[in-house]
Amino acid sequence: MRSRAEIERPPQGPPQPRPGVRLVPIGYRQAPSWTGELARRIGHVLGGAVGIETARLSLESALDVHRGQYNALTLLEGLIALPGSERLLGIVAGDLFIPMLTHVFGQAQLNGRGAILSTYRLDNAVYGLAPDDTLFAARLAKEAIHELGHAFGLVHCHDPDCVMHSSMYVEEIDLKREDLCSDCRQRLSGAAV
C-alpha cells in the first residue's frame, strides 16, 4: 500500500514524450474558448503534443430522440474514422449514454485510438448551482485526462486521489487530483504506444 506522502508528492519530472493527442470538439460552430487551456493541462500531465482538430463531425447520427441523449459508441466510431495516428478525444456538450446505462461522463477504447467526453454533467447549471468556470475547467481537464488515460491503456485506479479513479458523480471528480498516481504514471511510461 502506498503511503500518503508518496501519493501526495509532486509529479515526477517532465513526462516522457508520448504520441500526440488531438482534441475534437463535436457539434460546436467553432472551437470553444476553453480548448487551449484544456490542451495545456492535458499536455502537462500526459506529455506529448496536444492539438485541436478543425474538421467538423456530425452529432445527428448519434442522437437517440427517445432518450434525448447521444450514443457514445456511435460517436466513437465516427471519431476513430478520422485520418492520422494521434489519440483522439471527442468533446460534446450534450449528454452521453451507452446501451444499458442511463448516462456516462465519457467513454474510451482501452488502449485504442479514441475517447469521447461530455461536458454536460460537468456544468454546475445541470445541478441548479451557480456557474463556476474554474471548477468546470478543472472537471473538464480531469475527465479529459481520465478518458485519454484509458486510450493509453490505463484502467480504473483504486487510489481515490488518482485521476484514473472511477467517478460516478461529479462530486467524486472534484475529490480527485488532476494528476496520475505513481503507479499509473509508471504503467503509462511502460505502456506500448
Binding site: L73, I98, P99, M100, L101, Q107, A108, H150, V155, S166
Partner: peptide, 17 residues
C-alpha cells in the same frame, strides 16, 4: 442477444480492469 449491449458493457467493464 443485442450486440450493442454486449459491446458497451464489455467496454465499460474493461475500463474497470
Amino acid at each position: 442477444d443485442e450486440a450493442a449491449v454486449r459491446d458497451s458493457l464489455r467496454r465499460w467493464f474493461e475500463l474497470e480492469g
